[in-house]
């Protein structure tokens, strides 16, 4: 089985099968680039992901492993089609996978999934964070995301006024 070494920003190496790694758009490109530039077709590719730390990379690989037999979703799939939407793909396993994570980790996963081009994972993580926004009040969102209002002067009042123009009576 052809393998590939994927190395995190903090130097941890993960040895995974190329078949699995290729389910990430980014890793697939990297492997192909490596193949083209290498004379030895047997050589094991090594890919450094400088933006993702070991803990997060491990989670991405774990997710890929679980979903290795799912059909690959094209990254540019139209959301309106409904197909490939997070809800469709979200299994009990996914829910258990995401349940223990705090919002910070989930956000890091989003970044990683985006960088590695793993659409399915990107969808479910975004959906999770989005659920902390949808239907919530401004204060609830600020609390959940540990954000503070940094509007100056009448900026917030101005935005409220603009919002009133955007809603029907």
């Amino acid at each position: 089985m052809a393998l590939v070494r994927v190395i995190s920003s903090d130097g941890a190496a993960f040895l995974v099968s190329q078949r699995l790694a290729k389910r990430s758009g980014k890793l697939k490109t990297e492997i192909e680039t490596f193949r083209k530039s290498s004379d030895n077709s047997e050589a094991q590719p090594e890919i450094r992901i400088v933006t993702i730390r070991a803990e997060i990379l491990r989670l991405v690989l774990q997710w890929l492993q679980q979903h290795q037999n799912d059909p690959v979703l094209p990254a540019n799939q139209n959301e309106q089609d409904g197909r490939g939407d997070a809800e469709m793909g979200q299994s009990q396993w996914d829910r258990d996978f995401l349940a223990p994570m705090d919002l910070g980790i989930v956000m890091e996963l989003i970044l990683a999934a985006n960088h590695l081009e793993v659409k399915g994972l990107l969808d479910i993580t975004c959906k999770l964070v989005e659920s902390k926004i949808t239907g919530r009040t401004v204060d609830e969102i600020r609390t959940a995301f540990k954000l503070k209002s940094d509007f100056k002067g009448n900026e917030e009042e101005q935005t409220r006024l603009e919002n009133r123009w955007c809603v029907e009576n």
Partner: peptide, 15 residues
């Protein structure tokens, strides 16, 4: 991914 009606809450969160 946030539904359109919630956009008007999100723009009040921070700059």
């Amino acid at each position: 991914k946030v539904p359109e009606e919630d956009i008007l809450t999100c723009n009040l969160v921070c700059r």
